[in-house]
Write a protein that binds this DNA or RNA. Sequence first.
DNA 1: ATACATGCAAACACTTTGCAGCACA
DNA 2: TGTGCTGCAAAGTGTTTGCATGTAT
Lengths: 139, 139
Amino acid sequence: MKNRNTLQRRLVLETVRRMQNHPTADEIFREIAAENTLISKATVYRNLKILSEQGEILHIPIPNGADCFDFNTVPHYHMDCRRCGRIFDVNMPYQSDLCKKVCNPEGFLIESHQIVFYGLCPKCRAVAEQQKQNKPQAG
Amino acid sequence: MKNRNTLQRRLVLETVRRMQNHPTADEIFREIAAENTLISKATVYRNLKILSEQGEILHIPIPNGADCFDFNTVPHYHMDCRRCGRIFDVNMPYQSDLCKKVCNPEGFLIESHQIVFYGLCPKCRAVAEQQKQNKPQAG
DNA sequence: ATACATGCAAACACTTTGCAGCACA
DNA sequence: TGTGCTGCAAAGTGTTTGCATGTAT
């Protein structure tokens, strides 16, 4: 038998769907624990793995940081703010033919792709511009 | 003063340039240590960081695995073989206008992007096809 | 002479795993 | 009633850091 409907599994899924913020495993754990439900971090990790394998949620691996999870399982791209480190959805159509664009005489089998944009989110952009005005030529 | 020309720093740079295989910090460390040069892993990490900040080498952050480094600093894309985990260069022109394609009414500042392809390298593809032929309907 | 670099080990962040007991189907 | 799940703690990876010493300039 597989995929038992435990309280913990339900809570992990509900929390990812409710947060909508691309939360990390730790953020999900803290959110659930804050509601006084007994849950361990290992269980959160285990359930996130199972749920993403089942396609209920999307696992977004993040280099140099904690992986995060997305309630939106439709393929789309993300942006990583270099100042606050948060992950945001990017409004760009999915490039479904990008894999075919690879010139491939060596015979790689290209199955999927991932695009990550880097930059500043609106909030951090405003802060950065503020700071630039305060010390125009750097100190 | 900065950027001293130490034996260890020279060796790290030379080794990345010589290996050409997108080596990880650990692979670079083992390569140098194998030649009986006293070097510590911390020094390898420190020098890889400095060298990539100076633009001498390219730092390729890898989700779910050790970051790797590239002697080729010209922007290009990579493929991550899901079977052997090795990183390969992908033969596709750099999409320098991709950042401009993002529909961005919220005011993100999009500075750069990274594309990673997933699939099988030629060797692993051959192995996978071999295995498929040996048990056509799965065991 | 001294600021930068090193080796070593410990700390760190994130994630997985071993184990004994628990609970869903 | 038994397999799948849980909490806990420990272990596992990959990387960074504190510290005393060493060395390039």
